[in-house]
């Protein structure tokens, strides 16, 4: 599983994995691989939900380039 999966991609793949496990009578190795992938995907999704650190910034133009600076609403 790629670490760069977006939340949407991860959820979509997880849904697919669960469906396959639910419907198919898969050989042990295959079921095992799916199961492990599913566990990794749920971890990834939770990490995306928990991982982001709240940040509010503003874009300022400096010498034609855009730079970010912290922003505090008044």
């Amino acid at each position: 599983m790629s670490e760069n999966l977006s939340f949407e991609e991860a959820i979509r793949r997880l849904e697919q994995v669960v469906k396959e496990l639910e419907t198919g009578d898969l050989p042990l190795e295959q079921g095992l691989a799916l199961f492990q992938e599913g566990v990794a995907l749920t971890r990834h999704c939770t990490a995306l939900l928990d991982g982001a650190e709240a940040r509010i910034e503003q874009l300022l133009e400096r010498d034609g380039d855009a730079v970010t600076a912290p922003f505090e609403p008044d």
Binding site: G51, A52, Q58, L59, F71
Partner: peptide, 20 residues
């Protein structure tokens, strides 16, 4: 102000960038 308040309430870890 409203957009920041609502965003923080819905997703505490939200990241916003303002282009004034």
């Amino acid at each position: 102000r409203d957009m920041i308040t609502v965003s923080r309430r819905r997703f505490p870890g939200v990241r916003l960038i303002l282009a004034p």
